[in-house]
Design a protein around this nucleic acid. Structure first.
Lengths: 227, 227, 227, 227
DNA sequence: GATGAATGAGCCTTCATTCAT
DNA sequence: CATGAATGAAGGCTCATTCAT
């Protein structure tokens, strides 16, 4: 749960990792705690004290590193989310294979990094708080949403050029590729406790990939791809 | 009293008719105001006083009709969203035509009722606040989300039976039909101010319909339908 | 329960005494209700609405007869308590018999009129609120407490003159005759629910009369010692 | 900031040492202030802000130590009254002398500890607010009232066994020994300002002791008791 | 005369923020 | 660096009081 962006090898167990405080790891620990709490309470409903407790410090300490609750929130968004996008871009640039395969790879990668970590909370939070933090919303939209869309748009363009995909409005198609992912990731976080049937991730992703690639494929040979 | 017609744009004195109306229109006026405010501030950040002001009453008045801020929030959700779903169900039951046409009809109807009205705020709010109101989340998920999914699932099943659609997991496919709509509707509300390029609703809907129907269509004749 | 001072023959049953409203009985009904509510909630904790409900009217109606909550409270004290004292005085003046018999009569009468009706609430209230209502306290102390003490003092004086009682400071002795009654009446109201053993009124009164008369009686050999 | 050294006991400006102390003396200071304020305003009429001001802190500080106004009230009762009772019990257990002497000792002690300190306010409050705090009333009645009665009952029993006192219902007699004290202590606090003649404590106590011991004494030798 | 919808001041309570230690 | 006691500005909620009907 305590994942921070680029620290994916954190051994999540660590029974009691004492005696390694007093480093400069503090800000990260605080951000990590903030992620967890903001994420499932929302901005206003989050108490600095909860963050402090979870980070193993006191309220006052937070102010050594962040000017205000708002500043902490912004730092959180800025520092946790961008690396994800960058990572996606890196994958795309070095990927060798068909556009369809790349599409599938990115879809699954997105879910792994966003859907399965506490990072889910970020888009959820941004949707909710965009109105209250206009500059942050602008930053987020430009640096994350648009960049993510562009990434996916590149994949689609690649597919069109390669004759794999039909010619479509690539930016719109990119949004349509991402939105089922973003929505599911958020809704799952929000409503998991309310889903008696659970949420079958594999089915959801497979069906999305299947329908989407079917939908966008050039129609002559009709490249089906199921599992 | 009401010295002047219905909306005293009067300039004069109007000594101090401390309060005006006094109807059972009040609850609805308050809910309407609550919709606006909750919707763009979130639950916790909303001040009862703002709702009151917008409804043209004072804080105290709200408590004549609702027990608490939370109760007002619940009433808001209950009274605004459920009818929408019911309306969709009515359309589906009386619809005459192909499954594809029904799909398109529902997609456009959803956007018209949710995307173009302030009701957008409701799902946005629910996503954000579900964690803080487990009971409400359960209600919403059962009465709105699931019901909406079932509605769409029925359409897909109809298409499969008619040979229009490939056999797929209908519930998952239903979620995938809805999620681009739900996400877009929310994101548009959240980020519209941040979109320099705006949001081209027509393209988005058309492309979704096109890709989705293409994706789910039985592949032999492959009935494409673009615009 | 609903007793109002000088209306002791009120038939407490009256299944539904409708259609006799709109008289000038209103103020009394309100005072009666106020007595009940003030009495077991205290002044500040009493809501006008509770009084109104119990009186079968609405909040607004109270203001037709009383200027404010405070005014109602004062009227309540003034109008309900004085008749009691007067009644006691009347008994004393017309009483034929020994001082000891008169003492006993007054003690039992006090309990009957104060201990067994909602009038108990008045001294209880006054003790509690004297600090918040100085003028009222002054009125009450002069018109009720002092007058009550004087009444009892007269009895004691009578006993001394008749040789029944030892010579004592009559005013102090009067207070000591009354205080066990006043305290018991109040404490019983306050704590009845907390007394698993209940409160044995007969024992309490009998023992008080016994001890007090024994204590004040001229002992033939009589080693009195006063100051 | 602190332009000057560490503890400017200086007279000069003292720019704004926003707050001072910071000890665990705080809870006691608050309780002490609460005693004063609750005591002469009653529970409901007391404003936390008044308590805070009197304790030299702000409203918020109270909540560092007590969960709510009610919790503060309970703490107040628990910490002030119960020790008094215990002290009385200690006296009785170690007392050497006649039951009459012990009776007198306890009567005077009660007055000294309750009548002459601000603790008077507690029983006064309890009488008034018992109805609003059933649980607290139960606690108080069991831990204070009953315990006090039992203490006095023991004394009376001792006197009976020793042949000093007539056989009486000891529990009732105990109540009658205490009630003039409790009532006087409360009434004096409530009405002192209304007593033009003042309240002669010595007379009151002496006369009570005299009458009571006279009343309960075995009658043959007629134990007089002087000073 | 009565009503009851509406008001608005005020209180309890919370919590981001500060700062002496 | 850290702490945590203290602050003080709000916000939710209540309720005595008013007044159009």
């Amino acid at each position: 749960m305590r994942t921070v962006a680029t620290r994916p090898k954190a051994s999540a167990k660590e029974p009691k990792p004492r005696w390694r405080r007093r480093k400069d790891a503090r800000p990260e620990e605080i951000i990590s705690a903030a992620l967890d709490v903001f994420t499932d309470r929302g901005f206003a409903a989050t108490k600095l004290e909860d963050i402090a407790r979870r980070a193993g410090v006191t309220k006052g300490t937070i102010y050594l590193y962040f000017d205000s609750k708002e500043a902490l929130f912004k730092a959180l968004v800025r520092q946790t989310i961008v690396p994800i996008i960058a990572q996606g871009e890196a994958i795309a640039q070095t990927f060798i294979g068909s556009a369809r395969e790349l599409f599938e790879r990115l879809v699954r990668e997105y879910w792994r990094l966003m859907g399965e970590t506490s990072l889910v909370g970020i888009p959820k939070l941004m949707m909710a708080e965009a109105g209250n933090f206009p500059e942050l919303a602008r930053f987020y939209y430009a640096e994350v949403v648009t960049r993510g869309h562009r990434l996916m748009a590149g994949v689609i363009e690649r597919g069109i050029k390669a004759g794999e995909f039909r010619p479509v409005n690539v930016m719109v198609a990119a949004k349509l590729a991402m939105s089922p992912l973003m929505h599911a990731v958020i809704a799952r976080k929000a409503f998991l406790a309310c889903m008696p049937e659970g949420f079958d991730v594999a089915s959801y992703l497979n069906t999305h990939i299947d329908l989407y690639l079917h939908g966008i494929a050039t129609t002559d040979r009709s490249a089906s791809r199921a599992r």
